[in-house]
Design a protein around this nucleic acid. Structure first.
Lengths: 340, 340
DNA sequence: TCTATTGATTAGAGCGCTCTAATCTTGTAG
DNA sequence: CTACAAGATTAGAGCGCTCTAATCAATAGA
């Protein structure tokens, strides 16, 4: 388990340690003969530079800290995957810590990340107070995804949740729906914006926004629909539903079908997030898509700019979601459409 | 961005650097007075030890390399999340690399991980050749998850795919089904074992195993069912389906319903993996559950044992999956059950 | 008073590398 | 044949820490 060092390679190649260092960083000022000799010696010994030693000596870091709250959430898993791809391409490495949606655990995770003296840190939907983020940002560049902050040294990347909900409302209104309800995500990340967007879009269309308190789970969706069914007569029941997210939408659909209502003939449902779930042909959920790849790339790019000192002004990326129309939305019809 | 060092703390506290080091590693041989002074100085300066420098000097590492092929796969995301929780508790940090299911990229990722001189490495369903893994294992302890290998220096953690399929077959046979088909996952990880388990379980029950080549996707499931529908008369169509995984099962269900067959009244379907998908009340898929938490914990424990030098014999964990019975399986009835 | 003895503290080398400045080679012009 | 520039190579300090061995202080025993 004891691995060769630069010194070993130098000795074997009959050169100095410094020369090996130059070769390893493929400096142009090394003669071809020496370079070849060093490379061969390295090969023979199975030598590989020690990143940590390099990092220490060069006072630079190729490590990027990433804090994820919930990797089980496909949205963040996607972001991390994309981040890693970008990082690999740029010669950086990701050190990952999970925060478990607990401010304390998250703060520890952040501390931990910082103790690596990373080149930069990306926080995915952090729940720690802004002050903590500010503290971290004084140590190294910090980029936030799915969270806003008022700080001139922190960049942020968010999807425009208000616009997303508006997209859903516009779609339903365009199909002729007038009674549209929103299943609110409660305290979940981004839920407030989605609700706000829903409400203002409804008013823009001259419609009365109906909001039911729910959660970002399928059970939450079921319960919310049951509540609606109890509160409205069949005649007055909303014919369009803007769910808090895809899981919520699926639950809503279940409850509707259980009550003998057909989707989309009787009620149209729009989800949010465009998870792999929504794409299943079985469900074919109309939903709002957050451009995750772009979000990850922009976050990485923003961080890199800070790391390289190319920018000191903060950037606030607000990405436009898009609507993916599938099979759970249809034109409003007073009588109910024909069964397919 | 320039952070205080041990030297700074030492100076401020009026002690030597060595003493600060002792305090930071909470050594017992430090007087309380000094300890307090050092701690206060550290606090005032916002000092935090530099993990890399520590690692270099102590010739030990608190870094664990993790290679994931596809974080988008919820199974692996869950494992990583669990791994990180365990690692945090034990004072380790995860450095993550994705392999993208490409042997080349994966080999680079592995190399990269190795260049951190990690305490150990965990590979999740790696696709690189066994020889490469063996090479890595000579540098530091390696644990494989969802992949077997013949090597005395590598530990492995797998779920018993054969047993899992057998569970599904036993369940269906127990419900009276005789014509049971398996939708094979093709080259996907673990697919071969699932097929093998299916076949031998069928023979054990004195039944003829029917295997349709498919994929671990919903489209794959749809196509496989269409193939079955084309090959068999309604009378002879299998009444039980053991899908390659949950996505595959969902696709199969879609195609069945499209053909006017009801699930589970006409055909029972069992998935594999117990993804969040299967748990949706809307689907309520009967499926085989892999004990991911246990797998992650065992993998971590195995690695830790090697890291600490407590064990040199290889371990081969083979975990028993369990069946989660939900609503897509029902007793076989010749006439077809009544609609619910 | 002197010497052990124990516990607390520190000097200093070294981990594997980078980087600046110095040194060594050549080739070329005068 | 000397001088010098340009390129190639190396010495050596230093990154922030750990760890061993040495030093120091204080108490106890003779």
């Amino acid at each position: 388990m004891v691995r060769p060092t630069m010194e070993d390679v130098a000795e074997r190649a009959g050169v100095s340690r410094a020369l090996v260092s130059l070769v390893m960083n493929n400096s142009p000022k090394v003669s071809e003969a020496r370079r070849a000799a060093v490379l061969r010696a390295a090969e023979e010994l199975g030598y590989q530079p020690h990143v940590m030693a390099r990092s220490l000596a060069s006072r630079t870091s190729t490590v990027l800290g990433v804090m994820v709250n919930d990797l089980r959430n496909a949205f963040f898993a996607d972001i991390v995957e994309e981040l890693d791809t970008a990082a690999q391409a740029a010669g950086f490495d990701l050190i990952l810590n999970t925060g478990g949606r607990s401010p304390t655990r998250e703060w520890n995770a952040l501390h931990n990340l910082l103790s690596f003296r990373p080149a930069g840190i990306i926080l995915l939907s952090p729940v720690v107070p802004a002050a903590s983020i500010q503290v971290a940002a004084k140590q190294c560049p910090v980029v936030l995804v799915s969270r806003t902050i008022r700080s001139s040294i922190v960049d942020t990347v968010n999807d425009d949740g208000e616009a997303g909900s508006a997209l859903a409302v516009d779609h339903l209104a365009g199909l002729g729906h007038r009674r549209i309800a929103h299943l609110d995500g409660g305290g979940a990340a981004g839920a407030a914006q989605r609700r706000r967007g829903f409400e203002s879009a409804m008013r823009r269309h001259g419609l009365e926004p109906v909001v039911v308190r729910s959660e970002h789970t399928d059970i939450g969706g079921e319960n919310a629909v049951r509540e609606l069914l109890g509160a409205y007569s069949r005649q007055e029941l909303p014919t369009g539903l803007v769910a808090g997210n895809d899981f919520n939408a699926v639950g809503a659909i279940s409850a509707l079908e259980e009550a003998g209502l057909r989707v989309p003939e009787d009620v149209s449902v729009v989800g949010y997030d465009n998870t792999s779930l929504a794409a299943l042909r079985h469900l074919s959920l109309t939903t709002v898509d957050q451009p995750r790849k772009d979000m990850a790339r922009l976050a990485f790019a923003a961080l890199l700019e800070r790391v390289r000192g190319e920018r000191t002004e903060p950037v606030r990326h607000l990405l436009h979601p898009s609507l993916v129309v599938r099979a759970t939305t249809a034109e409003f019809s007073d009588t109910g459409g024909a069964p397919r």
